[in-house]
Amino acid sequence: MNSAAKQTPLHAAHVAAAARMVDFAGWDMPVNYGSQIEEHHAVRRDAGMFDVSHMLALDLAGPDATSFLRKLLANDVVKLKEPGKALYSCMLNERGGVIDDLIVYRFSDADYRIVVNAGTADKDVAWMRQRIAATGANLTLQARRDLAMIAVQGPRALERAAAALPELATARGIPSPFSCARAADLLVARTGYTGEDGLEIAVPASRAEAMWNGLLAAGVKPCGLGARDTLRLEAGMNLYGQDMDDTVSPLDAGLSWTVDFKDEARDFVGRKALQSKPAQQRLLGLILEDKGVLRSHMTVVAPSGEGETTSGSFSPTLEKSIAFVRLPLAAQPGEAVEVEVRGKRLKARTVKLPFVRNGQILV
């Protein structure tokens, strides 16, 4: 354990459960509680929970909130027609690189919550404050470190969470997919990072451990960062700092679907850079056919030219090694390619992402 690392409100619960703790983005976090593969399968087959309190919730409020976010983000918040709807977006710099990927929830035109990544939280807040000052927007931005966040994921996640949390018994307790609802002092969002159904729950830090223990009693298995990584990889979900960063365009990172160019008058940060430099690469999935393990930064030789893996690991669901690979635009799913692993060229094939969604193997 790194004694300088920050601790979430659930740290004592992880230590009591004999979790293996690691430093992740400056936080002391559980990587697993025993078998990482068992934790992975629990989420695919039943229900697992993750402490995601290292991520940061930001409350943006004021009369200029909607107009500010329309220029701050590459996706367009006007798509959020109803209160509680959620939107995934990248926040770009002027060069079109990804400062962070985030989720924004709309409560009203003057009230939003934004959830950002742990490793970029300070940078994100500084960038947003800079943009607020530069535009003179009438807004307040509040970092909610008084909250903990627990993600409950899996095909039985809703059922088990409802059994543990009486607040969810209310008529509006469980929101529709990619929406959120307030239930007493909780914010319950039907979102996640695993490719399964589930909830991400923001709870006052003082209540977090009691909630965690209640979910545990309802049969939800604690899961660490290891399973979270293999689950998101199977689900085709990017990891900031690995699959994209502030030097990578979302158009090259498989995230063009999150960039909204429709309103020509919406001059969001990075728009001009993206329009002047269209996509150069294509993000595909990779399945290793030979024996070995795929990791990031491996050279891939394809019919269209060379590329590089950005994330890679063993897939417990497929029981094979898988990766994301950035290849020239001409690359197609279903091609035979070779991966350079420790001086050897191993056989692999490209596939369309995701590998797995809602428990079903799609490749």
Rank of each mutant, 00 (worst) to 15 (best):
M1S: 00
Q7L: 12
A12H: 07
A13H: 08
A18Y: 08
G26D: 13
G34S: 04
A47V: 10
S53P: 04
H54E: 13
L56G: 03
A57G: 03
D59Q: 13
A61K: 14
A61P: 07
D64R: 11
S67W: 10
R70D: 06
L73R: 14
L73N: 10
V78Q: 12
K81A: 12
C90L: 08
I99F: 15
D100V: 10
R106M: 12
A110K: 12
V115P: 02
A118K: 14
V125S: 11
M128A: 11
R131F: 02
G136R: 03
L139P: 02
L139D: 01
D146P: 05
V152L: 11
Q153A: 15
G154P: 03
A157Y: 11
L158K: 04
R160I: 03
A171I: 15
R172K: 13
P175C: 07
P177W: 01
A181C: 11
R182W: 01
R182Y: 08
A184N: 15
V188W: 11
A189S: 14
R190G: 04
T194Q: 09
T194A: 13
G195W: 12
G198N: 07
A205E: 00
E209K: 02
W212C: 00
A217T: 09
G219A: 11
K221E: 11
G224F: 01
A227G: 03
R228T: 00
D229H: 10
T230M: 12
L231R: 05
L231Q: 09
M237V: 09
N238K: 09
L239T: 12
G241L: 10
D243C: 09
M244L: 15
D246P: 03
D246F: 11
P250I: 03
L251P: 00
L251K: 02
T258M: 10
D260V: 11
E264R: 10
D267E: 08
F268I: 05
G270Q: 03
L274I: 09
L274S: 04
P278M: 06
P278Q: 02
Q280E: 13
L284N: 06
G285V: 08
V293W: 02
V293A: 09
V300K: 00
E306H: 00
E308W: 02
T310Y: 05
L318W: 02
S321E: 01
P328D: 09
Q332S: 10
E335K: 07
V337T: 02
E338N: 04
V339N: 08
V341H: 01
R345M: 03
L346R: 07
F355Q: 13
Q360G: 04
I361L: 14
L362T: 08
